[in-house]
């Protein structure tokens, strides 16, 4: 393919033959992926398939045993934490929530990557923080304590923190967990807007294949630490891939312009 020759321009984030282990157990084997700018990529796979480990390698929190991650064509390992944080925002799966920290204070902390130790917060930054809170529907709750919010509100506050970092690339590990139906769709609508409207690049771990099919441009299907399939979401997530990746039979149907994945109950099919 012709764009392979100048991948630094075409891919904002990529991995080359990534291998990662925890102790003696190998978690990721030989993962080579490319994330194109301005695309929403869903990372899907069964529990334990290595999604979160891959995310942690992509942000540089986990050191790969072999292979490397490239951010803007430069090896991630050669960049400082602040350089990375100006390009990549990351929403981890679980969050520590300190007592007595307000939502407003939380979101302002996102500015550290840009200002550093002694930099000052500018008016434009403040507007950005307010905008991030408005986006997740917490504009009126900036003075509220994080630890007193409901689970869903807290998750939205942490999403606002990632948005306030104002990076071209966002990595999100199950961002719609803990959210009720309305905010699952509201958050994903918002993420979609970030991609379509602002050209941001998103890599999002999603459990619900229907959400992945509805919102993602591309999908990466992981199984036991290997890439089973990658490409446009609708091509990747077909009945065979679902069967192979999740061990469950499913019907994929088109309905009103949407592709729906309908698992056929809980009957397991033979695992290879």
């Amino acid at each position: 393919m012709q764009y392979e020759t100048h991948c630094a321009v075409r891919y904002v984030l990529s991995t080359e033959r990534l291998k990662f282990s925890i102790g003696r157990s190998a978690i990721l084997h030989d993962i080579s992926l490319r994330f194109r700018p301005g695309r929403f990529t869903a990372l899907v796979g069964a529990n334990g398939s290595g999604k979160s480990s891959l995310m942690r390698c992509l942000i540089g929190l986990a050191a790969p045993e072999a292979g490397r991650v490239l951010l803007d064509g430069r090896p991630l390992a050669s960049q400082t934490r602040r350089q990375i944080a100006r390009r990549l925002a990351y929403l981890p799966q679980s969050s520590i929530c300190p007592d007595h920290l307000t939502v407003g204070e939380l979101v302002e902390l996102a500015g550290f990557a840009r200002t550093g130790l002694f930099g000052t917060v500018r008016a434009a930054d403040r507007e950005g923080y307010r905008e991030a809170l408005r986006t997740v529907g917490l504009a009126g709750k900036a003075a509220r304590q994080l630890s007193r919010l409901s689970g869903g509100e807290r998750q939205r506050a942490f999403i606002a923190l990632a948005l306030a970092q104002d990076t071209p690339v966002l990595l999100m590990d199950e961002p719609v967990n803990h959210l009720d139906l309305k905010y699952q769709y509201a958050v994903l609508d918002l993420l979609r807007d970030l991609v379509t409207g602002q050209g941001k690049t998103l890599v999002v771990v999603l459990h619900d294949l229907n959400l992945a099919l509805a919102y993602a441009d591309d999908a990466v299907l992981l199984k036991q630490g290997r890439v089973l399939a990658q490409g446009p979401a609708r091509q990747v997530l077909d009945a065979r891939a679902v069967a192979e990746g999740f061990g469950i039979a499913a019907d994929l149907r088109d309905l009103g312009g949407r592709r729906l994945c309908l698992p056929k109950g809980a009957q397991m099919i033979g695992m290879p």
Binding site: R56, I59, R82, I84, Y90, P92, I96, P98, L101, L109
Partner: peptide, 13 residues
């Protein structure tokens, strides 16, 4: 205080 990993991701060594 937000957790080591989150702090790293937000640019803190």
């Amino acid at each position: 205080g937000l957790g080591r990993e989150r702090a790293e991701a937000l640019g803190v060594p």
